[in-house]
Write a protein that binds this DNA or RNA. Structure first.
Lengths: 195, 195
DNA sequence: AGGATCATGTAACCGGTTACATGATTAC
DNA sequence: GTAATCATGTAACCGGTTACATGATCCT
């Protein structure tokens, strides 16, 4: 599965604990592949059993001990192998609770639908500004460290964030056009009654 | 869950078999919520146990008998209840195998990445024309049947397809800009070497 | 002859979600 | 005082995927 390779991929940057991996996930990959802590722990122990990872425990007196995972050679090879094989079908099936309700929107009061669309826009705006902050940080990054390898990594991270940015902007435009379309439909309906 | 309500929702249009539901799904809701046949059958029997659906069997001599499901009153009430309660968070977590590889794209030969992005564009173009065909059919629909209730339904179906249309178009633009960005990065890198 | 369509399902698997459990430290 | 952070997990559940099973008819 993909989650395991995401973990292996992050561990190519250096050894980490499950807890640290979760944090790195949330700040980077989560925009492309989300994961919960319990899932990460479960996956890490499975990967260790497989021999893709090794672990050593760092004792701490004040806090719980750390279990630090490192990528093995076979683990790295597995990651590289996975990375080179892109999926044939690049369209991932959508499952969207919100959209499912819009599909049946004709059964609702159109004022409620418009309210929900407005809520949708607010949420997308929030997420958009979050993405814009991340983009700003990347811009700082790529100007600071102009080492070739680091700049290259930042480039691809930027591309993933850009995708989010662009699609969210489009979704906002979509929702706005929906509100218009719905309003038009209902005003036309009333004109007909007026005749 | 959502699948059950999608099924209940479709059955508000009239009684159907699981097989028929699958076909309707593929032509409409699948763009918003995909489902497999085995899943539909499993779900339908669960809904019948719950009392949301009732079934009667239509005997056929040449083909397997049909098990026709109808919505019960409690089923309809459950659907309406679900429909009115939109999820608080309208952002669904992404999980995209393709994007995960782009995230680690710095570890690949940039020519391969560009090739995969081009394949991505081809696939999106195909899906786009599919969506455009659906939109054309809807346009015919809404001009043909101008009964108020039917036109209203078509309106919301159009909105769901429009979302797909707009996001796919954006994804194509994104992929094109990625190819540019990557090419720029590598030509700049070579210029530096030339100095 | 071979594949699509009609029509029903079952069973196993896999991975994502939620809830539970523990417990010290630090910051407001 | 109470919430967040650090740090580890386990167990149950739920829903989506894949594979299997059956069998006639219709189209190329």
């Amino acid at each position: 599965m993909s989650l395991s390779y995401a973990l292996l991929g992050l561990l190519t940057y250096g050894p980490m604990t499950g807890y640290q991996l979760k944090k790195v996930f949330d700040e980077s990959i989560s925009h492309v592949w989300a994961a919960s802590l319990s899932q990460i722990y479960r996956e890490l122990s499975a990967l260790e059993k497989k021999g893709y990872l090794s672990s050593n425990i760092e004792k701490q007196s004040d806090r719980p001990n750390k279990k630090i995972y490192s990528l093995t050679e076979t683990g790295k090879a597995a990651f590289i192998g996975w990375l080179g094989h892109f999926p044939e079908k690049m369209l991932t099936p959508n499952r969207d609770e919100f959209m499912l309700r819009i599909f049946f929107g004709s059964r609702l009061d159109h004022k409620q639908v418009i309210n929900e669309l407005k809520r949708f826009i607010v949420q997308m705006d929030q997420y958009l500004s979050l993405l814009e902050n991340i983009e700003d940080e990347f811009d700082v990054c790529s100007s600071k460290f102009s080492v070739e390898s680091e700049a290259k990594e930042v480039l691809f991270w930027q591309l993933t964030i850009k995708r989010g940015h662009m699609t969210i902007k489009t979704l906002i435009k979509w929702a706005e056009s929906c509100i218009e379309d719905i309003n038009n439909f209902y005003t036309k309906q009333e004109e007909k009654k007026g005749d």
